[in-house]
Computed example of a mutant assay.
Amino acid sequence: MRLHSAVAAAAGALMLVLAVPGSASAAVGQFRYSYKTADGYDAVGFINNPESGRCIDIRGAGSDGTSASYAPKNLTDSTATVFLEAGCTGAAFYSLRPGAGASERLLVRSVVFS
């Protein structure tokens, strides 16, 4: 009887472990953006398989304090919300559905994926 109870308890514990969600999920794919280097050259940056639900300040964007990245392309399987301000703050934001891109007029400094 005790062995039966121990097996049942172990099975229940295993089911609980399997039911608990794993670590943070990620958007699968690549997020691309363009920016100007400090020397004034056009460059392309990218983020591979970005973590979902976490604000990402875009590398290269605003590194000189004035310019932002532009022309984002969301080649992931999640919606990307891009912000003009760093830290995913401010009233200026735009959502890009999976597979969508935007023109060079859309300026971005941070992004978060759903």
Rank of each mutant, 00 (worst) to 15 (best):
M1E: 12
L3Y: 11
S5N: 14
A6T: 13
A6L: 15
A8N: 12
A8F: 12
A9P: 11
A10G: 12
A11Y: 04
G12R: 12
G12P: 09
A13F: 14
L14E: 12
M15G: 11
L16D: 09
V17C: 14
A19C: 12
P21M: 02
G22T: 11
G22L: 10
G22I: 05
S25P: 03
G29I: 02
Q30T: 14
F31C: 07
F31K: 06
F31W: 01
R32L: 10
R32H: 07
R32T: 11
Y33V: 00
Y35T: 02
Y35E: 02
G40T: 06
Y41S: 08
D42L: 05
A43F: 01
G45L: 00
G45F: 00
I47C: 09
I47L: 15
N48F: 04
N49T: 12
P50I: 05
P50A: 05
P50M: 01
P50Q: 03
E51L: 13
S52Q: 15
S52A: 15
S52G: 13
S52D: 14
S52F: 05
G53D: 13
R54T: 15
C55F: 04
I56H: 15
I56V: 15
I56Q: 14
I58Y: 02
I58M: 03
G60R: 00
G60P: 13
A61R: 02
G62L: 00
G62N: 15
S63K: 03
D64W: 04
G65T: 06
G65K: 04
S67M: 04
S69R: 01
Y70R: 06
A71L: 00
K73M: 07
N74S: 02
L75F: 01
L75P: 00
D77I: 02
D77R: 02
S78W: 03
S78T: 07
T79P: 01
T79C: 05
A80T: 03
A80Q: 03
V82Y: 01
V82I: 05
L84P: 06
A86C: 03
A86V: 07
C88G: 08
C88T: 08
G90N: 04
A92G: 00
A92I: 09
Y94E: 11
Y94M: 10
R97L: 12
R97V: 02
P98S: 06
P98I: 06
P98D: 03
G99F: 03
G99M: 04
G99A: 05
A100E: 13
G101H: 06
G101I: 04
S103L: 08
S103N: 09
E104R: 12
R105T: 12
V108P: 09
V108A: 07
R109Y: 06
V111K: 07
F113N: 10
F113W: 07
